[in-house]
């Protein structure tokens, strides 16, 4: 009798953990990323002593708002099993277009929708190529990358300063809570993430995104609208690229056609670190947020340390490696289990 009373809670615990694993095994990498983020913060605080300040933490969001926005769009694309290499270039194109149009005297109320449409148009092109012409996402978005980068230089070969107050307001306004502060760009980025997470979890479109990533053919047989979904994720990523262009223009007070070269890699790295599988089917916007924070923290630590910026890329590379090896091990294990 006594043995059963001892084992019962333990058995229940085991069954809980099993239920949890059966339901949320795909969240494990995201938890790991969260742990790494916390470890990074604690480690940096212990090392520098003055790292974990409200000012620093607020700056994290301010400096990487554009990356967060791009990562949200990328998460949608990657969950469907695709990839969007064009995001950095789209950001540059929309950013420089924004600066140029504002410089020509158009009001922000016209310019902002226009650049979002521009981003959406490039996304639409990629999506249509992928969906209707069976072009691999890698190649289609590569065309998007070339196109947007070239167009950025067509708009202007050099940087253009922005004087428009409403755009600069996005960056210069600081709402303070004690020593913490947040800018409209930060709020914009967080809202994009919140909307993204909400859409993925609670709408049919969001669930179709996962379904397409799991198995496109099956999703189609289930009667889901695969074609629209696949086109739409690239449009979303394009719109995010446009928003990021706006945010980055506000942030730097200028549009510059060379912005965001290689940013697509940073975005992909952040998304993968956040636990989204590049094979598609699993991932969370929240994970991508954490991935961006990890990325941002590493960058900040290296700047703090005064070390060669080259280390950022090496560390991000190594971290990416660690993540994919761990993910691989998890996959191999679960295959074994069968």
């Amino acid at each position: 009798m006594s043995t059963t009373t001892v084992t019962a809670p333990r058995a229940r615990l085991a069954s809980y953990s099993r239920t949890f694993l059966d339901r949320h095994s795909s969240m494990m990498p995201t938890f790991a990323a969260l742990l790494i983020f916390i470890a990074l913060l604690i480690g940096a605080e212990m090392h520098f002593g003055n790292f974990l300040t409200p000012l620093n933490m607020s700056a994290l969001l301010l400096n990487y708002a554009y990356l967060l926005i791009l990562a949200v769009g990328m998460t949608f694309v990657i969950i469907t099993g695709g990839i969007d290499l064009s995001v950095g270039s789209v950001m540059a194109f929309t950013g420089i277009s924004c600066a140029k149009l504002l410089g020509e005297g158009y009001s922000a109320a016209v310019v902002i929708p226009a650049i979002l449409l521009g981003g959406a148009a490039i996304g639409l092109l990629i999506g249509v190529l992928v969906q209707y012409f069976d072009v691999q996402p890698f190649i289609a978005s590569l065309a998007g990358l070339f196109l947007a980068r070239g167009l950025a230089f067509v708009v202007s070969l050099s940087s253009i300063r922005v004087e428009n107050e409403s755009v600069l307001w996005l960056q210069t306004t600081r709402w303070r809570f004690g020593e913490w502060y947040i800018t409209p760009t930060g709020i914009l980025a967080l809202s994009v993430a919140a909307i993204g997470a909400f859409v993925l979890a609670f709408t049919r479109f969001g669930r179709t995104v996962y379904a397409v990533g799991g198995n496109e053919q099956s999703a189609r047989l289930m009667g889901l609208n695969v074609a629209r979904t696949k086109v739409l994720v690239y449009v979303i990523s394009g719109v995010c690229g446009g928003l990021a262009g706006l945010v980055l223009t506000a942030y730097s007070g200028a549009g510059y056609p060379r912005n965001g070269i290689g940013t697509e890699l940073d975005v992909i790295a952040a998304v993968v670190i956040g636990g989204t599988l590049l094979t598609g089917g699993t991932g969370y916007v929240l994970g991508s947020v954490i991935g961006v924070l990890v990325f941002a923290t590493i960058n900040t630590i290296i700047a703090y340390e005064g070390a060669e910026q080259a280390w950022t890329r090496i560390i991000i590379g190594l971290m990416l490696l660690m993540f994919i090896v761990v993910q691989r091990v998890i996959v191999v294990r679960s295959e074994r289990r069968r």
Binding site: R204, G214, M222, L224, G281, T282
Partner: peptide, 29 residues
């Protein structure tokens, strides 16, 4: 129901059963 199981291994059993006709409230799942 096809021979090769045409479901989605990456999402929950419940979703696999009702995706496409899932219950919604105010347009949300």
């Amino acid at each position: 129901v096809y021979q090769e199981i045409d479901l989605l291994p990456n999402i929950s059993v419940a979703e696999n059963i009702s995706l496409g006709t899932e219950p919604r409230r105010f347009g949300l799942i």
